[in-house]
Write a protein that binds this DNA or RNA. Sequence first.
RNA 1: GCGGACGUGGCGAAACUGGUAGACGCAAGAGACUUAAAAUCUCUCGGGCUUGGCUCAUACGGGUUCGAUCCCCGUCGUCCGCACCA
Length: 876
Amino acid sequence: MATERYNPREVEPRWQKQWTEDKIFETQNDDPREKYYVLEMFPYPSGRIHMGHVRNYAMGDVVARFKRARGYNVLHPMGWDAFGMPAENAAMKNKIHPKNWTYENIATMRGQLKSMGLSLDWSREFATCDVEYYQHQQALFIDMMEKGLVYRKNSKVNWDPVDMTVLANEQVIDGRGWRSGALVEQRELTQWFFKITDFAQDLLDQLDHLDQWPEKVRLMQRNWIGRSEGLTLRWAVVAETAPTGIDEISVYTTRPDTLFGASFLAISADHPAAKAAAEKDPAIAAFCEECQHAGTSLAALETAEKKGMDTGIRVTHPFDDNWQVPVYIANFVLMDYGTGAIFGCPSGDQRDLDFANKYELPIVPVVLPTGMSEDAFTVTTEAYAGDGTMINSRFLNGLDTETAFQTVADKLSSTLLNGAPQAERKVNFRLRDWGISRQRYWGCPIPVIHCEVCGVVPVPKKDLPVKLPDDVTFDVPGNPLDRHPTWRHVGCPQCGKPARRETDTMDTFVDSSWYYTRFTAPWETQPTDVAAANAWLPVDQYIGGIEHAILHLLYSRFFTRAMRETGHVGLAEPFKGLFTQGMVVHETYSRGEGAQREWIEPAQIRIEEIDGKRRALLLDGGDEVAIGAIEKMSKSKKNVVDPDDIIASYGADTARFFVLSDSPPDRDVIWTEAGVEGAHRFVQRVWRLVSESAEQMMSVVSNPAKEGEALALSRAAHRTLMQVQGDYERLAFNKAVARIYELVNALAQPLTTIAAGKADQAMVEAGKNAVEILLHIIAPMTPHLAEECWRVLGNSGLIAQATWPSYDESLVAENEITLPVQINGKKRADLTIARDAGQSQIEEAVLALDSVKAALDGKAPRKIIVVPQRIVNVVV
RNA sequence: GCGGACGUGGCGAAACUGGUAGACGCAAGAGACUUAAAAUCUCUCGGGCUUGGCUCAUACGGGUUCGAUCCCCGUCGUCCGCACCA
């Protein structure tokens, strides 16, 4: 009867081997059962998995195993988001080829994931840097080109003159390249763009129907798309002030109602009128230059002074030919939003007001806040941007802002200027088209050829893939594809003359925008097997970090739409359910101050409590170090715990169980050594209780008790089964864990009695039934432990393939309930009564209680409130 | 600046979204077993008091309600997203 301690180092690999040999997680597309697609955001192969991965994949695995037990045909695949800059950085630093670096990392991380015992279908695995994958991405690109969803245009980019590359905005820190530290220049380059703005309205509208997404994410996307309704309004330039070729300036406004409050126009330094004015006036040219070199960093934007310069240009007010308005170049006007020009109404916009005060422009209040008198209302330093009644606005006076908006829009839409309507209603989006050109080697080559005669020619599909050449060097900065001796030279597919390949590669976000579709038929010779994609998609449950709330998820939503337009899938929304998990965080330890500060790894520390205060001491030498803030695990703060170490010392089940317990899954979880030990104690306890009693239970039938001593045990098991089932459906893993602890606590006594051979037949049968339920509900979280316990109970099959048990209704429902009894809203007593007792029966019983009698003191109660199955409140 | 979320014991958190506040875990304390330690088991564990009971307590101040951690108004604090978007 005495059993050994549970040894995960021996047990876990054994079951992993069995699962692999039996191929039980390999999913068939022709399986007739109802489908369920669960997916965790695939990892970037940076080198080793971290605790964030463990948490992410543990959650997905619980869902996959649970749904499988519930009878679904579950698709749970894994792959690698394998293109990107770190591989090239490693190449430059360590003289290793990006391809080797990447595939070596994948091999390492695959092994690590396998040691977690995840129920993944490894037969569908791929990496985005596999030619077999990116060739299809190139085909998609060509199809999208044909549908007009791809185009080229000149665009301003952040250019790092040292690394000789374009940088993303996130890679520019305080105006300098994040790697080189060089001052970043603004350069105009011809870049490839995806027309995501074609779908702006639909991407916005469909957010309302994504009801299994976190509200937070939907809101972030809504803001990012940034829809606004307004007017483009053309202002005639006063002829004698006009630069060459400029006879009107078009502005975008969401507040045409405030048109009579206009005191200036402001245009971007990149606006054609500004450029024209600059040609004539060196001072203006100098100002434009200054605007263009202004820092793009957050700090620079925050503190940047609003600056402007009068161009000398004057425009005529749309409603008054005798009213001239000055045109300024302003450093805060963006060329790529609206028309690159605005009209300023100082009384209604704080920024316009600051500008007007600085350059002594008129401030005319035009909107009177409701409930204020016109005499008392002035605008000096604080603008009023709200709604109200129009004043100082001629024919608009007395109208509300909304009516005034429509009046102005109607009038100017039917007024002609230079032969066209002076204004047009216009919906604008903040969302910009997606620039995908990257001047990098380690990415998917953009499959086009530049021919001097034919222009831009897509690579014919029969010539795909455009493979990355292997023989590249990284000893000098810049894009190795650009300086490759032969790769870029190619014959034009149309005219046959010498031409050159596009050397830009695609943004890695393109790779991750459709991988979930590829998983549905990774063997297919086309990008997708449409039938398979339509059958599996949408992903029922997608799980990943909140950091992808906007870009990855929005790009994927766009891509599915683009793939629908090109006939590769039949739906628009790829992810039905989305869950954003919290991070794994850890205390930080350090010694020293300021620049001398040295961060210390948790593995080198032991925690002791001295005089009631937690202290961190170095293992080596025992010096005390400072305990710092709890932060996201990061290499720089050294507060990382390596999953390999945890799995080696405690096993995968303990690691999985711990990251799922304690914190709600969408919140951060604090990694502590004590917490892990707690999880490990649980694993050991379950093993001990089950293995010690298994021999007694092995030969009996599993049977819940309906009466007698064992009833409580059966009730606890079946109630827990019902609750945990609900918790898993809602991804409330922490609650499931709490209830499982409760059940194990309830099982401890009976199982000990059974193990000692002192229990009667009914108890042993009920015990076996309860243990089986326990194993089923822990199996998704701690699959190896469940499998091992399942075996010692005498089962020959795998619990990973067993069907989820159903709970017995009669054991879940209580015949008698205990109602709390309140007097004036404060709990004073309990009342145990039949579950189906009627209102009057309950009232009678309540009035008979001693404490109620005492409180009433012979008087009748004012009111008795009975909430069925909940509570009774007596109002005295 | 705009938008959003959150605030409950020493700590992570529960409370079926208006019905017994603190389940479960961690930490701590006491005890049992042991030559000893580990492991295991039992008990205590928000504050106060006149302690078999009463009372206060869910950031703070109000309100609605028979009843508020939950709804409403205000204040403070923390975190997140966007950020010159016209």
